[in-house]
């Protein structure tokens, strides 16, 4: 019981620390585009994406355009997990 309480306390401490940090470090909620007016990447993408990519959905143009490489990475992660799961659940053991 005592040990569990200690662990609980540690988790709470880390959580509280993060809570304080979030309010101290990040700009407050609803303040996009942050302190850097017009130079934040999100704002620039909002301005340029409709004309540069021609997509009406800006998120799509980010996912498939500006950050397409991330999407490629994401597909690879999925592939990795599929191979991993197939490997773990494969039939048979050693061939010998």
């Amino acid at each position: 019981m005592n040990r569990e309480f200690l662990r609980l306390l540690t988790a709470v401490a880390v959580g509280l620390l993060l809570l304080v940090a979030v309010y101290a470090v990040l700009p407050s909620f609803g303040e996009f585009p942050q302190s850097r007016e017009n130079t934040a990447v999100g704002q620039r993408i909002l301005e340029e994406a409709p004309s540069q990519t021609g997509a009406t959905n800006v998120v799509t143009s980010v996912v498939w355009g500006y950050r397409g490489y991330d999407t490629f990475g994401e597909a690879t992660v999925l592939f990795t997990a599929v191979v991993g799961v197939l490997m773990v659940l494969r039939a048979g053991g050693r061939r010998e």
């Binding site: 662990r7 540690t10 988790a11 401490a13 880390v14 620390l17």
Partner: peptide, 16 residues
């Protein structure tokens, strides 16, 4: 395992 995770958290606090 839970000890490992606990040490990670303690380490995080020390690192801060």
């Amino acid at each position: 395992l839970s000890l490992y995770v606990w040490w990670v958290l303690i380490g995080a606090l020390v690192l801060v």
